[in-house]
């Protein structure tokens, strides 16, 4: 029994059901119009289409500017006792009130922005660096290298992240670099897993085989051929990592495991916790700052996902 699959019409849809073909036909017709654009422009367009992400990006830029400029403009020292303790927001010109030691909450939040963003960014960078290196090697070399590295990853996933980094900070001293390392050391497994699965997928693709066949060295294959194509999900993950690193830092400083000479959002909440009955605003506002920043980061992450994930783009 023969079938029409072998004929030379080869519309390539022989395997599809009619329904799928019908739907594809509808989509293809529309895609023709957008085909000619540059991929980066396309990605930017997709990002801007996600209105929440665009608004979030705007606010994120605002937060970063606040972190840089805020403390220069608003010169009140967050450690100074500027007024009577527990002055409610608005009283005597202190927009967000004062805490249990009469320190200006607004000043604290402005200075804390710097710390949160700094630690968040550098911990995320470190996470991505470790995660990508390990994931890339595991996915590229396969065999025992992969086995060993994935076992290592599994090992780090078993460690209770917060407890472990609490211990690191307590043992090696509560300085910002140590805090950053403590966060990075426990957060990388997720990035490693994503990188590895992307590498596993891409290394089997034809252009990689072609490049290998034309004599490319391993290093070139890894960094010039595979890595650029594996980047989209890693970038999305990195954006989310900044958010979770900020949450992580906030948690540590809430528990008091932070540099006592530096104000941070979590630390304001932690130190004012005993007085929430009298002055709930002392924990509400710094918490809002954390919440809003991380919210913006996750929305931007969503937008990046829309922009960079070609599978979604077709929907």
């Amino acid at each position: 029994m023969n079938d029409l699959k072998n004929d030379s019409r080869s519309d390539g849809l022989a395997q599809n059901t009619d329904t799928q073909a019908d739907l594809n036909a509808g989509i293809n017709a529309e895609q023709l119009t957008t085909k000619a654009r540059h991929p980066a422009a396309d990605a930017l367009g997709m990002f801007l289409k996600n209105r929440a992400a665009t608004v979030a990006l705007f606010f994120l830029v605002l937060i970063i500017i606040t972190g840089i400029v805020g403390p220069m403009v608003y010169k009140t020292d967050p450690f100074d006792m500027v007024w009577a303790p527990f002055s409610p927001p608005g009283a005597e010109g202190f927009l967000l009130g004062t805490d249990y030691l009469g320190r200006d909450i607004l000043a604290g939040i402005l200075y804390g922005t710097r710390v949160s963003l700094l630690v968040g960014l550098s911990a995320a960078l470190m996470t991505v660096f470790i995660g990508v290196s390990i994931g890339a090697m595991a996915g590229f070399f396969r065999g025992w290298v992969e086995e060993a590295l994935m076992r290592l990853t599994e090992f780090f996933q078993v460690l209770p992240t917060l407890l472990f980094s609490m211990v690191i900070v307590a043992l090696f001293g509560p300085t910002l670099p140590i805090i950053t390392i403590a966060i990075g050391a426990v957060s990388w497994p997720a990035v490693a897993r994503i990188t590895r699965s992307e590498f596993l997928r891409i290394r089997e693709l034809e252009y990689v085989t072609a490049s290998r066949a034309s004599g490319s060295k391993n290093a070139k294959l890894m960094f010039k051929v595979i890595l650029p194509n594996a980047l989209p999900p890693i970038i999305v993950q990195a954006a989310l990592m900044v958010g979770s690193a900020i949450l992580f830092e906030a948690g540590l400083s809430f528990l008091g495991l932070t540099d006592p000479n530096i104000v941070s959002w979590g630390q304001i909440i932690g130190s004012n916790r005993p007085y929430i009955l009298d002055a709930s605003y002392t924990v509400t506002f710094p918490g809002l700052a954390i919440f809003f920043t991380v919210l913006c980061l996750s929305l931007v992450g969503d937008g990046l996902n829309d922009a960079l994930n070609p599978k979604l783009r077709q929907r």
């Binding site: 029409l4 519309d11 849809l13 022989a14 599809n16 009619d18 329904t19 073909a21 019908d22 036909a25």
Partner: peptide, 19 residues
């Protein structure tokens, strides 16, 4: 008929299972 000619749609309609 070839793919996309509506054969399957007819079937789904008889089943009451149109998308």
């Amino acid at each position: 008929g070839e793919s996309g000619c509506g054969k399957s749609m007819t079937a789904l309609a008889i089943m009451g299972l149109l998308p």
